[in-house]
Simulated scan of single mutants.
Amino acid sequence: MKYNQLGKSALQVSEISFGCMSLGNDHAANARLLHRALDAGITLFDTADLYEKGENETTVGKAFQGRRQQVLLATKVGNQWRTDGRGWDWNPSKPYILQAVEHSLRRLQTDYIDLYQLHGGTLEDPIDETIEAFERLQEQGKIRAYGISSIRPNVIREYVSRSRIASVMMQYSLLDRRPEESCLPLLQEHQISVLARGSYAQGVLVDKPAQPYLNYSVEEVQQAATAVKHVAGNGQKIVDTVVDFVLQQPVVASAVLGIRTDEQLAAAIQAAARLPLSPAEVAALRRAVPPSRYELHR
């Protein structure tokens, strides 16, 4: 497993990370899966207080009792569940963040979070107030680094210029190259890492039938999947190919892969030992479909 520095922080993250959102309700089964990932060298585990109303954080926290020093725990804040439990509201305020972190710490059964991320963001937010909350938590030792999870270029630019974020989590894949236009170069310039999610494009690049994806038609999605198969052959190398396409970008510190089953974990672990794509192979993939671009929040 390769490890990369996360931005300017002291965190060294595994280039394959475990996206915990899809974990089920069986704490023992989850612990076995998470321990297998850690034993294979995966060290970054990403969750959020939004997932399963906090139960996802709880199952991750239970799993790593006794092994806390070996893992990097990343979670997210900003979506406040309503009292009736029938939805949530966006709340990036300083008081809420300072309150919510205490609940996440308790569920994760830890006294610090390695990476605390704002789970969204708009230009209408009290951005300086939000940053103040993260800075205070870092000063208090309750978080080691902070970042945002966003695909909005205009929001990303604000945090790049006004904060000390270590990372931006964003969707990036062969079928979502929108970050290449403006976000990736900007973050590279400022030594802010990308945590890439959605590398499989909801599975259509790997093992699911073609269907419309973002602004791509079924035919274009099929073209991309065919290009992947042409470069990779079949089987595990398809996963290797779509993951390596993302990690070819030097600003991408880790590909965060959603994992729920033993088979998905095995594929993720194998991808860490992949052979890198050649420049010709990368070029062939990029020719398969035209790059998309952000239309909103530019």
Rank of each mutant, 00 (worst) to 15 (best):
Q188K: 14
P290I: 07
H103S: 13
L195D: 07
S292R: 10
I165D: 06
A210K: 03
P212E: 04
L285C: 04
L184Q: 14
K229C: 10
Q109D: 09
I131Q: 04
E219F: 10
Q211L: 02
A28W: 09
E189G: 12
R293A: 11
T59P: 13
H103Y: 12
Q80Y: 10
L195T: 05
G258I: 01
D111N: 13
Q236K: 07
E135M: 07
P92Y: 10
F245G: 00
R68G: 10
S163V: 06
I127G: 12
E124I: 06
I165C: 00
V228W: 07
P95V: 11
L6P: 00
P290V: 03
A283P: 09
T261N: 06
S104L: 00
N4P: 09
N91D: 15
S150W: 06
F245S: 00
Y146E: 08
N79I: 11
L118V: 05
V206H: 00
L123G: 04
A10P: 08
P153E: 05
H297N: 13
P185F: 06
R68Q: 12
A227G: 02
Q211R: 13
E263Q: 12
Y51K: 08
Q99E: 15
Q264Y: 11
G66S: 11
V228H: 04
S104I: 02
Q138R: 15
P276A: 03
I131N: 02
A267T: 04
Q202R: 10
S254M: 11
R67H: 15
Y200L: 06
V60P: 02
G41C: 05
P290G: 07
Y96I: 04
L115V: 00
G66D: 12
L275A: 13
E181F: 14
A201H: 05
E219Y: 02
R274G: 02
V289K: 05
V77Q: 08
P179C: 03
D39A: 05
D46W: 02
H119R: 00
R106M: 11
Q211N: 05
G41L: 08
L257G: 00
K208N: 02
R274D: 01
N30F: 07
A100V: 00
L296K: 15
G7C: 01
N215M: 12
K53C: 08
L187C: 10
D39T: 04
D84V: 05
Q5S: 09
M21W: 13
T43N: 12
E52P: 01
Q236N: 13
I165F: 07
I127M: 14
G85I: 04
Q5C: 06
A74P: 11
T83H: 14
E139M: 13
S149Y: 06
D111A: 09
V252I: 08
S173G: 03
L285W: 09
I97E: 09
R286L: 15
D26S: 09
V252T: 03
G203W: 10
L205H: 06
V194N: 05
P212W: 00
H35E: 14
I127L: 15
R197E: 12
M1D: 11
S163P: 12
F134R: 06
I143V: 08
T58R: 13
M1I: 11
T47E: 07
L72W: 04
V246Q: 04
R136G: 05
A210V: 08
A232F: 01
A288R: 07
V60R: 00
P126R: 14
K76S: 08
Y159G: 02
I192N: 02
I113E: 08
